[in-house]
Design a protein around this nucleic acid. Sequence first.
DNA 1: GCGACACTTCCACGAACATGGAACCGATCG
DNA 2: CGATCGGTTCCATGTTCGTGGAAGTGTCGC
Lengths: 260, 260
Amino acid sequence: MTATIAPGGDLDIAAAAGLFADPTRARVLMALSDGRALPASVLAAEAAVTPQAASTQLARLTGAGLLTVERSGRHRYYQLATGQVAVVLEALAQLAPMQPVRSLRHSTRATQLRSARTCYDHLAGRLGVQITQALIDAGALAAGDGITDTRRRPGDRLSSQLTEHPYTLGPHATQILVSLGVAADRLTDNDRSSQRPLLRFCLDWSEQQHHLAGRLGAHLLAAFIEAGWITRIQGQRAVRLTDTGRHGLHTRLGLDLLDT
Amino acid sequence: MTATIAPGGDLDIAAAAGLFADPTRARVLMALSDGRALPASVLAAEAAVTPQAASTQLARLTGAGLLTVERSGRHRYYQLATGQVAVVLEALAQLAPMQPVRSLRHSTRATQLRSARTCYDHLAGRLGVQITQALIDAGALAAGDGITDTRRRPGDRLSSQLTEHPYTLGPHATQILVSLGVAADRLTDNDRSSQRPLLRFCLDWSEQQHHLAGRLGAHLLAAFIEAGWITRIQGQRAVRLTDTGRHGLHTRLGLDLLDT
DNA sequence: GCGACACTTCCACGAACATGGAACCGATCG
DNA sequence: CGATCGGTTCCATGTTCGTGGAAGTGTCGC
């Protein structure tokens, strides 16, 4: 099917512009404008709308050919279909700033999500990734085969638990984890009451790095909440690190968190 | 008094896009996209709407700062406030879907537009693309680094295609461009009187290739018109290449243009 | 001054369309 | 298997917004 380039047609500029003319769609497109592929839930948070609203607009944008979708498990990752979309965004942005510009104060909800959130029953986001890395650095976890960081590896799927990973408990696991509030008897690899593995890892969508999951991840989050290091933000998946928590992570793990 | 401070930076993009998202406004802007100043009645005819409708939309566009008005007797001449508006139109045109032909007149006019038109202050359409290519072939422009396709590569920043391009002046730039009527002292890269870059390129919506824009693009169009090589088609954006122009382009650039 | 003209404003009708609640599908986890 | 979660679809609501008719303001020509 050769695209019959009808040489007399008119271009429907208005229809194309209309796709950018809604706040929700504009924010979604802006969030994608660097070329990343993001799941619908993240885009909903980024645009500060309900999942239904986001889904509706994503369907519209996809139908119009501005976005492409890729399914991965129960997630759907959206991405700009062509760089031309980003060109339009940039061109429009230069026309827009007649209003007070505040490019930094992004949707706070999205920022919070990126910063720290729960993933099922364990920590994710920048905080989750950094704690995981700190556990490795401190010897509570050990990565096999010369792997020293938590970066994404080929074949890892976003936002789903990795069935195979190179990590094991490290030489100082008991000492450190107990000091963080996890009961020592929870560190056995085979808990009789559950087949759930002690160590599991997810690939974090916002950081493109691994964060700790599995039974240990759950215990750790529970311990942090128990100790008041972390509090849930009302009605959301985002969590907040308290001052106590910041101090605790610093003394116990040598972890210095830059900001929020 | 307008200053309704919209609560969101990205909202401005939606608002800006909204100005292009109406058929009437889009047609009006397209009619003005070559930088001319046209009276309201002409724009109403161009958009095929009643005078009231045109007036309403013109007021909206003017209020938003996209257009400027100048009164002259009982007429009001509208004009694009800035070339950035034309940039947005060109960018949108590339992702705009084709629209079925409405009439023979429309069809012939659309064909003329594809053939040769002005884009604010420089040449576009097939003629603009071919001249740009001829300038490269003749060594007046040089394309660097061999990356000639516009396809996206993984990890590329999508948003920087307008401002960054691989072209520079070529070894025969001065000789050729002067022979085409551009003053030699206009070829310095940094004109003190203007921050506008000498070389800029647009992706042509009708040809899917680059055409020359920027200060040089403007000088070149001015020189062609001055020399009588190109004339504007009465009341439209389309331009016509005269026989003199065809001959000039052949002898100076070795450019053989097939047809109209 | 009178009429014609260019253009605008007021107003009310009508059509898109974005949104949220509820229900539904499929995948993952325990 | 049951629970939950990510995501979508359906539907009813409410709002925005473009438009045309009628009327108003200023300009030009006789």
